[in-house]
Amino acid sequence: MAEQESMASMQSAANLAWANGQADMVHSPPHYNQAGIECIDAIRAATDGGYEYYLQGNIIKYLWRYRYKNGVEDLEKAKWYLEKLIEEIENE
């Protein structure tokens, strides 16, 4: 029970940061962290060998849409995924 309350408290703090414009929507958006687990970590664990393709797909997605949706924020997201992909390749 205490763990659930702690997780709820963390999520409430993340939501408050987002509402106040203090959340980093590129590097650590609060909606991508549930129960203390980052979504990217769960995806990496679930996709194993497909993780690099996942990263590549997201790079393409954000580069494709930046002019029509979120501008520089989408370019920053593409950069974030590119940095993750480079890190993956270097650690092989």
Rank of each mutant, 00 (worst) to 15 (best):
R44E: 14
N91E: 11
V72F: 05
M7D: 14
A46G: 09
Q56A: 15
A23S: 02
Y51M: 03
R44W: 04
A23T: 00
L55N: 00
G71C: 03
Y68M: 10
E92V: 07
A35D: 15
E76W: 08
A23Q: 02
L63C: 11
I60Q: 09
W18C: 08
K69Q: 11
I86K: 12
L55D: 02
Y66Q: 13
D24N: 04
E88A: 15
M7V: 12
K61Y: 00
A42H: 10
Q11H: 13
N15P: 04
G49S: 07
S28G: 07
G21H: 00
Y66V: 06
Y66W: 13
A45V: 05
A14Y: 14
E88F: 12
I43H: 04
I89K: 07
A23M: 03
S28Y: 05
E92N: 07
G49C: 04
K84A: 04
E3N: 06
D41G: 10
M1C: 10
E73N: 11
N91K: 14
I89R: 14
M25D: 03
E92P: 00
Y66M: 05
E88D: 12
N70C: 02
A23G: 00
S12F: 03
D48N: 09
A19W: 08
L82S: 05
D48F: 06
E90K: 15
A17C: 02
E3A: 13
M7E: 14
A2V: 11
L75K: 03
A17G: 03
I60H: 09
H27W: 09
A45E: 06
D24A: 02
L82I: 06
G50E: 04
A46N: 06
A19R: 11
A8H: 09
E88N: 13
I43G: 04
G57P: 05
E87H: 12
Y54P: 01
E52R: 10
R44V: 05
S9E: 15
D41T: 09
E38M: 10
I43F: 10
Q4W: 13
L16T: 13
N15R: 14
A2T: 15
E90M: 15
A8N: 12
H31G: 03
D74W: 00
R65G: 03
R67C: 10
I86L: 14
A17I: 01
N15G: 13
Y81K: 01
Q11R: 14
Y32G: 05
S28I: 04
E87A: 15
A19Y: 12
A8D: 12
G57V: 10
Q34N: 08
A45D: 07
Y66T: 09
Y53D: 15
G57K: 05
G36R: 03
Y32Q: 08
N15H: 10
L55Q: 01
K84R: 13
I43K: 12
A13H: 12
L85C: 06
E87P: 05
